[in-house]
Deep mutational scan, measured.
Amino acid sequence: MPSETPQAEVGPTGCPHRSGPHSAKGSLEKGSPEDKEAKEPLWIRPDAPSRCTWQLGRPASESPHHHTAPAKSPKILPDILKKIGDTPMVRINKIGKKFGLKCELLAKCEFFNAGGSVKDRISLRMIEDAERDGTLKPGDTIIEPTSGNTGIGLALAAAVRGYRCIIVMPEKMSSEKVDVLRALGAEIVRTPTNARFDSPESHVGVAWRLKNEIPNSHILDQYRNASNPLAHYDTTADEILQQCDGKLDMLVASVGTGGTITGIARKLKEKCPGCRIIGVDPEGSILAEPEELNQTEQTTYEVEGIGYDFIPTVLDRTVVDKWFKSNDEEAFTFARMLIAQEGLLCGGSAGSTVAVAVKAAQELQEGQRCVVILPDSVRNYMTKFLSDRWMLQKGFLKEEDLTEKKPWWWHLRVQELGLSAPLTVLPTITCGHTIEILREKGFDQAPVVDEAGVILGMVTLGNMLSSLLAGKVQPSDQVGKVIYKQFKQIRLTDTLGRLSHILEMDHFALVV
């Protein structure tokens, strides 16, 4: 994948999101292997301009796509893939009243899908469409860049269908997702969380590099694949309309690839034109409109599966009536509230959605109805927002919020430890010299600072030695090549209790 991002070429006709291997024109390309080798690009942008032909009021008969309808489940399912879809609609009884809503608040519980998330729908649909058009064949390999849930859905379907599955996901995604993927037989590649989507090191860039190296491999490409919004247009939206008897006044959905909100909203605009569509985008993402909503100094966020630093091709923002931004604290607070007060075992993005819903639905009156999409299960986040310690460490809970008995030293300040200034190293000294210094002084790690004293990161003896043994660096290389740029900081005025929580999850903390 090139470091400079080429513009994806656009073909003359058809839909841009065809499933299957992508040609340089962004659509299915038939021909000899030699032709494909000559024409197939190194990668295709996940934010390529959409060429979708959908228009409100256009006859369904003019759609270029294969459409399906929700099917009634048999008493005995032939395999677990038949437990994807037909998820329950559940009334939220307490939270709406707590925040003064007059309307009825309903939750579409997508964590009841077989793999635990709304992404099971698009995973199965992308595979079925690729099999139907002859792209996927027995023994082929599926590769997908994902925040985890699409990966789980694909790995689940691949396990049943017999495909090899490789999932490329950023490091910030939970260990629970990784464990589930491994249990399903998927191979996992992790990428830096802070890598831009168009960087060769991003999950998108690495996935395309693997595709170019592995024979008979395919990126189904949830960011561009029409099967993504079509899955929701054909099934999720129809289920909502049936469950609500066609009567709903507002739908609120958090947005990642945009397939969920695009597919549902398009069908609702056709069948229930008075329904307002509300999009939820986390602070630090750029999906919301108008652009002024996205202006923030924050560039990272903890909530998973929603928000991006690019506009995915499948996201149709014209069908969203209003956007709201959400933050991590309210997302996790509301997710825990949904679990504790409503018994809905949902993930953090569901918290984002409901946090926005109780604001947006203030305009609705008694007798009206708001539906929220709860995308995934708490299963993926047992060591994250479900953990009091994690919430404390991230600053989303305060010590006084917890009532468990603490040891005698818990409320003492870090400054009472009488710490001395640490050994520091410059980023320009060599790895070999740094190892000598650390061994001589008896230290395992040291902060790396520039000549102005600005902290650049941390270097550890173990990481340097393993990097040297693996051949990633040489003793003569500058130590700046092996620094940890993500590390926890703590102030002298913070409590030892807070430091204790940090050290339970990290090997060190830097006192500043």
Rank of each mutant, 00 (worst) to 15 (best):
S3R: 15
E4H: 11
P6V: 04
P6N: 10
P6C: 10
P6R: 05
P12Q: 10
T13Q: 09
G14L: 13
P16R: 02
P16D: 08
H17Y: 14
G20I: 12
P21I: 05
H22W: 06
A24C: 12
K25A: 04
S27N: 13
L28C: 09
E29W: 15
K30I: 05
E34K: 12
E37R: 09
K39M: 13
K39V: 08
E40F: 15
P41W: 10
W43G: 10
W43K: 04
I44H: 12
A48K: 10
P49W: 09
P49E: 09
S50N: 07
S50R: 05
S50A: 09
R51L: 04
R51V: 06
W54L: 06
Q55G: 12
L56A: 10
G57M: 08
P59K: 10
E62F: 07
S63F: 08
S63Y: 03
H65V: 03
H66T: 10
H66F: 12
H67F: 14
A69C: 13
A69M: 09
A71S: 14
K72W: 04
K72Y: 09
K72F: 08
P74Y: 05
P74I: 07
K75P: 09
I76T: 03
L77G: 07
L77W: 03
P78F: 07
D79L: 06
K82A: 09
K82W: 10
I84F: 11
G85D: 06
D86A: 11
V90W: 01
I92H: 03
I92F: 12
K94T: 15
K94C: 13
K98G: 14
G100I: 03
L105P: 04
L105I: 15
L106P: 09
A107S: 07
A107W: 01
K108N: 02
N113E: 00
G115F: 07
S117T: 06
K119S: 02
D120V: 03
R121W: 00
M126I: 08
D129A: 09
A130K: 00
D133F: 05
G134R: 14
T135W: 11
G139N: 07
G139H: 14
G139Y: 08
T141M: 13
P145H: 00
T146H: 01
G151V: 01
A155P: 02
L156F: 05
A158P: 02
A158N: 02
V160W: 03
R164T: 07
C165G: 08
I166C: 03
I166K: 08
V168E: 02
V168Y: 04
M169T: 07
E171V: 12
M173K: 08
M173S: 10
E176A: 03
K177H: 02
L184T: 07
G185T: 00
T191E: 01
P192K: 06
N194V: 06
N194H: 13
N194S: 13
A195Y: 06
A195D: 02
A195N: 08
R196L: 10
H203K: 07
A207R: 00
A207K: 03
W208A: 14
W208N: 09
L210K: 08
L210N: 03
N212T: 12
I214A: 02
I214D: 05
N216R: 06
D221T: 07
Q222P: 01
R224L: 04
R224Q: 08
N228I: 00
P229T: 05
A231P: 08
A237V: 15
I240N: 00
L241A: 09
C244H: 01
L248F: 14
L248E: 03
D249Q: 07
D249V: 04
D249R: 07
M250E: 01
L251D: 02
V255H: 06
G258R: 00
G258S: 02
G259V: 01
G259I: 02
G259N: 03
T260G: 06
T262K: 02
I264Y: 02
I264W: 02
I264G: 03
A265S: 15
A265T: 13
R266T: 07
R266A: 07
K267G: 08
L268Y: 07
L268R: 01
L268W: 01
G274K: 11
C275N: 04
R276D: 04
